[in-house]
Design a protein around this nucleic acid. Structure first.
Lengths: 119, 119
DNA sequence: TCAACATCTCAAGAATGATTGAAATGAAGA
DNA sequence: TCTTCATTTCAATCATTCTTGAGATGTTGA
């Protein structure tokens, strides 16, 4: 997913707060099933009000999504937004500079295709 | 270059400010020769005081480096710090999730090895 | 040593972001 | 419908960040 500069600025701002960075981690681990707002707040030690504030911020930044399910609001990581941010950092911010992209390529390859890690 | 969570939080905070994001772009384009503080400030339309403030912030976050050269302070992009941030985002934050790493791997490959872009 | 230059530091004020607790909304079951 | 539960919204407060302009620091060449 391609994101523009304004979205990237929002996303960087969202990830610069410890509680929110932890929330993203928790939601990435939870996967597509996601977690209810209350569960996310509990997982990171935030009050319900604080959790709602931070989750709204993350959603506005395009890093998480929400859906209602019965009485709960289920939050899930927005993998498109996250990968868009990684791509923005490499392409728009770092201009595809090899010194940035080459190490990143190795890490990405190690992550999603371990058998190709060391060709 | 591997960075820890505190450094990543600092780096995300640094990049969440339009003037600083633009400064990083300018310094990436400038390459290893870098640019004097005044030239960076001028390139992004910041006063000398404001430029100094933002460049210090970027340096503390590990995204740029500085050296004195005659009467100028030359700033350069810290490619190790930038690639470390990309790697942090993929590995520590997104847990190496394929939905994030796979698109990132394509982008990285397209950046630094264009002849392998579409196999 | 002195003047000119590049940059940084400092203090004050404005703007933005985070935390808290209370109250409002919206959905589900008795 | 009424109560309960999950979440959000609101207002107040505090902390952080950004901008500005004045002054300080350090470097160079006359």
């Amino acid at each position: 997913m391609k994101i523009d500069e304004a979205q990237a600025l929002d996303a960087f701002g969202a990830l610069s707060q410890p509680t929110r960075l932890q929330m993203v981690r928790v939601l990435v681990v939870a996967g597509p099933d996601g977690l209810a707002a209350g569960a996310v707040g509990e997982a990171v030690g935030a009050s319900s009000s604080s959790a709602s504030f931070h989750l709204s911020n993350l959603e506005r930044a395009g890093l998480v999504q929400s859906r209602r399910e019965a009485r709960c609001i289920i939050y899930t990581a927005n993998f498109g937004g996250l990968s868009g941010l990684v791509e923005f950092l490499m392409r728009d911010c770092c201009q595809g500079h090899p010194d940035v992209c080459a190490p990143a390529a190795l890490t990405a390859a190690a992550c999603c295709a371990p058998e190709r890690g060391q060709p």
